[in-house]
Computed example of a mutant assay.
Amino acid sequence: MQPFPSAYQRILDKTLESGFTMASDALTCSLLRTLAVSKPSGKFLELGTGTGLSTSWILDGMDPPSTLISIDNDAVFLDIAREALGSDPRLQLVLTDGGAWIEENAHQRFDYIFADTWHGKYLLLDKALAMLNKGGFYIIDDMLPQPNWPEGHEEKATGLVAFLEAREDLLLTNQLWATGVVIAVKK
């Protein structure tokens, strides 16, 4: 098995201490790293930093000229990511509302978007997808039923996958693996 990112265990310990329960699992994170390697000199966007667990994996797959903007609206969790990863010059951690950030930055284009929060996944999806370059990855997880889902969320997840599958500008693979990962590529 390939090694975990150097900051992973430190972030995981702080995540457990903080009570944050929405972090991506290690299988998904490993896939995020592998896909990141395929985008040399890429522009990366993560919507929903959380404590930075998935961020550490994405950074681990990125080459030196690549850049990652990671957005979250919770200062306590973002500070965990900042403490562990903030010295990486490729990373820009942004404390703001995801919806406001998408609206203000709709002109930007990315080679890789990991949407791990409501904005860019269930809200403002069209605007987030418009930010994706041709050949770029759009990745979401937690598409299989999760114990922390509120009542009625399964219908939202099913509807989201159906919406993505129906789009003619995306080629999509829905993986019934890990927590349920969807990978789409912009045609």
Score class of each variant (00 low, 15 high):
59 L>I: 01
60 D>G: 00
61 G>C: 06
62 M>N: 01
62 M>A: 08
64 P>M: 00
64 P>L: 03
65 P>H: 00
65 P>C: 00
66 S>L: 07
68 L>F: 03
68 L>S: 05
70 S>M: 01
71 I>K: 06
71 I>M: 00
72 D>Y: 04
72 D>Q: 01
72 D>A: 03
74 D>C: 02
74 D>Q: 02
75 A>P: 00
75 A>V: 01
75 A>I: 01
76 V>T: 08
76 V>A: 11
76 V>N: 03
78 L>R: 02
79 D>C: 03
79 D>S: 14
79 D>F: 00
80 I>N: 09
80 I>E: 07
81 A>V: 01
81 A>R: 03
81 A>T: 07
82 R>L: 09
84 A>Y: 04
85 L>C: 08
85 L>V: 06
86 G>M: 04
87 S>L: 08
87 S>I: 02
89 P>R: 14
92 Q>P: 09
92 Q>T: 15
93 L>H: 08
94 V>D: 08
94 V>I: 14
95 L>K: 05
96 T>L: 05
101 W>Q: 10
101 W>E: 04
101 W>C: 09
103 E>Q: 13
103 E>R: 15
103 E>Y: 00
107 H>R: 13
107 H>P: 03
108 Q>V: 06
109 R>S: 14
109 R>V: 10
111 D>S: 12
111 D>I: 10
113 I>C: 12
114 F>H: 14
114 F>C: 02
115 A>L: 03
115 A>V: 08
115 A>W: 01
115 A>P: 04
117 T>M: 15
117 T>I: 07
117 T>N: 10
118 W>T: 14
119 H>E: 09
119 H>T: 14
120 G>M: 10
120 G>D: 03
121 K>Y: 07
122 Y>F: 14
123 L>C: 04
123 L>Y: 03
124 L>T: 00
125 L>A: 08
125 L>W: 05
126 D>A: 14
126 D>P: 09
127 K>N: 07
131 M>V: 12
132 L>G: 12
132 L>P: 06
134 K>W: 00
136 G>V: 07
136 G>L: 05
138 Y>V: 08
138 Y>L: 11
138 Y>N: 07
138 Y>K: 05
139 I>S: 12
141 D>M: 15
141 D>E: 12
142 D>T: 08
143 M>D: 04
143 M>G: 02
144 L>K: 05
145 P>H: 10
147 P>M: 01
147 P>I: 02
148 N>G: 01
148 N>D: 11
149 W>T: 06
149 W>Q: 09
150 P>N: 03
150 P>L: 13
152 G>P: 06
155 E>N: 12
156 K>G: 12
157 A>F: 01
157 A>W: 02
158 T>P: 00
158 T>Q: 11
158 T>E: 11
159 G>T: 10
159 G>H: 11
159 G>E: 02
160 L>E: 09
161 V>M: 14
161 V>P: 12
163 F>Y: 15
163 F>A: 13
166 A>C: 09
167 R>W: 10
167 R>D: 12
167 R>F: 06
167 R>S: 14
168 E>N: 13
169 D>G: 13
169 D>L: 08
170 L>P: 10
172 L>K: 06
174 N>W: 02
175 Q>V: 11
176 L>S: 09
176 L>A: 15
176 L>N: 08
177 W>L: 13
177 W>P: 04
177 W>T: 11
178 A>M: 07
178 A>E: 01
179 T>G: 11
180 G>D: 05
180 G>F: 11
183 I>Q: 12
183 I>V: 15
184 A>D: 11
184 A>G: 15
186 K>M: 04
187 K>H: 06
